Simulated assay, not measured.
Amino acid sequence: MTAAQADLQIDRPTVADGAVMWRIARDSKVLDLNSSYSYLLWCRDFAATSAVARDERGEPVGFVSGYLRPDSPRTLLVWQVAVDASYRGRGLAAAMLDGLAARTAKEHAVDTVETTITPGNTASERLFTAFAERHGALLEREVLFHAVQFPDGPHEPEVLYRIGPLTR
């Protein structure tokens, strides 16, 4: 953790964090925004595989939502990563991702991380490429969902990033 992150705490989200997580996702203007209800449920049902960063007042300033793949329970699928605009540029997304990977490796024997990224999302591409390098892991990419598979209008393809096995 860097000095810029020292005043922040990373832990599991609670239901009380759901509304703020929804706001952070909305304000990112990059993420697909889910319903506020889904963020509340996520904090209730997937807290063990998600992380929230809190400021010195205990308020959420970033989050990583994830779940264990049902058909591959040692794989953590990272759904969304978001950091409040006032906390960006401090390495917080990487710190949350590293912390979540370490926690789920210890608690659930996770050895692989997956996520999807749309082409041109260079911030996410850099985040997950650097994550793979820090963890001495292979990074494989393939299109998981093609643009034509999305029924709700124009959507870029979602490229699956598979990172593993994690070695550190």
Rank of each mutant, 00 (worst) to 15 (best):
Gln9His: 09
Gln149Ser: 15
Glu56Thr: 14
Gln5His: 10
Asn34Val: 02
Ala25Phe: 01
Trp42Leu: 14
Val148Asn: 14
Leu138Thr: 11
Ala93Ile: 07
Asp152Cys: 08
Asp32Ala: 09
Ala6Trp: 14
Ala82Met: 08
Arg162Val: 07
Val110Asp: 10
Asn34Asp: 13
Glu140Asn: 10
Asp17Trp: 04
Val148Trp: 15
Lys106Glu: 15
His108Gln: 15
Val78Trp: 03
Phe63Thr: 02
Thr49Asp: 06
Thr112Tyr: 08
Gly18Phe: 04
Ala147Trp: 11
Pro157Asn: 04
Arg23Ser: 11
Asp71Phe: 12
Ala47Arg: 05
Gly58Leu: 08
Ser65Glu: 05
Leu77Asn: 11
Arg88Val: 07
Glu140His: 03
Ser86Asn: 14
Gly99Leu: 07
Asp11Gln: 09
Gly136Trp: 07
Arg103Asn: 12
Gly66Arg: 01
Glu59Pro: 08
Ser36Phe: 05
Thr129Trp: 03
Ala95Asp: 06
Trp42Ser: 03
Asp7Cys: 01
Glu158Leu: 06
Asn121Thr: 03
Tyr87Asp: 08
Tyr87Ala: 04
Tyr37Ser: 10
Ala16Asn: 12
Ser36Lys: 04
Ala105Ser: 15
Met1Ile: 13
Val52Asp: 07
Phe131Trp: 08
Ala16Arg: 06
Gly62Trp: 05
Arg12Glu: 11
Thr167Gly: 08
Ile163Gly: 00
Tyr67Arg: 01
Phe128Arg: 00
Arg103Gly: 03
Glu114Trp: 13
Ala147Gly: 14
Ser124Asp: 00
Leu92Asp: 09
Leu68Cys: 13
Glu133Ala: 13
Val15Gln: 00
Ala25Ser: 13
Ala51Ser: 13
Thr104Asn: 10
Ala132Pro: 04
Ala4Gly: 15
Gln149Gly: 03
Asp45Leu: 12
His155Asn: 11
Ala47Trp: 02
Tyr37Asn: 14
Thr2Ile: 09
Ala3Val: 14
Asn121Met: 10
Gly136Asn: 10
Glu114Leu: 13
Ala51Glu: 05
Thr104Arg: 06
Gln5Trp: 08
Ala51Cys: 02
Ala3Phe: 15
Ala48Pro: 06
Arg69Asp: 14
Gly89Phe: 13
Val159Leu: 11
Val110Tyr: 05
Arg162Cys: 00
Asp32Gly: 09
Gly136Tyr: 06
Pro119Asp: 12
Gly120Phe: 06
Leu92Gln: 05
Arg88Asn: 01
Ala19Gln: 06
Val113Tyr: 00
Lys29Glu: 14
Ile10Arg: 02
Ile10Cys: 10
Arg88Asp: 06
Glu125Val: 12
Gly91Gln: 00
Gly66Lys: 05
Asp152Glu: 14
Ala137Arg: 04
Asp27Glu: 12
Asp71Arg: 12
Thr75Ser: 13
Thr75Lys: 03
Ile117Glu: 04
Asp45Pro: 08
Arg90Trp: 11
